[in-house]
Design a protein around this nucleic acid. Structure first.
Lengths: 114, 114
DNA sequence: ATCGTATTCAACCTCTCGGTTTATCAACAG
DNA sequence: CTGTTGATAAACCGAGAGGTTGAATACGAT
């Protein structure tokens, strides 16, 4: 596989196990054992998947005694999404949706003030 | 590789040659020879890349005499982008990025790569 | 020091990817 | 029919993905 950043990101996303891991991490940090639990696969296999995700910059790992908690990093996801968006023709739709979302958030913030 | 739709899409995007092909097709239909021209690679290799893209639903191919014009299909791109967006929480950042991207594209209106 | 738990490393296997070359198919032009 | 051009098919190859098992490492608890 090519080793440029976008290629690494997309390749990392091209596996349902890894996507499930990312989905799990979106809810918060987790250890390797916790991440491996749902899968019918060896711990070592999951560890390899995590290495792929780490190389792609999609996760970072801390150290807490013998545990290596994994944390989701969204920067490469944003780069990948930006690449895709350039070739999705529906600019105005997306723009409208985002504009609505922002107005909604701003409105909520205003209400919180009162 | 796993054969579900998202996996096929991301796997197809995980190659710079295929991303360049999609970028080219975003400017309009093209034949296999036209698509192969920029690459230092055999026509057959490009044909294989097109087959991957076709299996992922990212392109469709017509028939015009002995030519097989390729056309970009954005539906899987939108699905992929939607998956990513679910895990990128940074709406306002995205908004800024999109706004910048739109201005950039409106300015350039032309020659660029994957 | 020893044991248990969390994680990784190393070796191995099988299958797919991305490329090649050679041969073949399909459609026009003469 | 023959020849040419556009495109695909088939067979092959080296490298890497994704999984396994077994050993090694790192740290905490006893």
């Amino acid at each position: 596989m090519s080793d440029d950043e976008l290629s690494r990101t997309f390749a990392a996303l091209a596996d349902p196990t890894r996507r499930a891991i990312l989905a799990r991490l979106a809810e918060g940090e987790a250890t390797v054992n916790e991440l491996a639990e749902p899968f019918d696969m060896s711990l070592q296999a999951v560890s390899k998947h995590l290495k792929v995700l780490e190389r792609a910059g999609l996760i970072t790992r801390g150290r807490d005694a013998q545990w290596r908690p994994c944390r989701l990093e969204t920067a490469p996801l944003e780069t990948a999404s930006a690449w895709i968006d350039r070739y999705c023709a529906h600019w105005s739709d997306r723009f409208d949706r985002l504009e609505r979302e922002i107005r909604r958030v701003q409105h909520e913030e205003g209400q919180e003030q009162a």
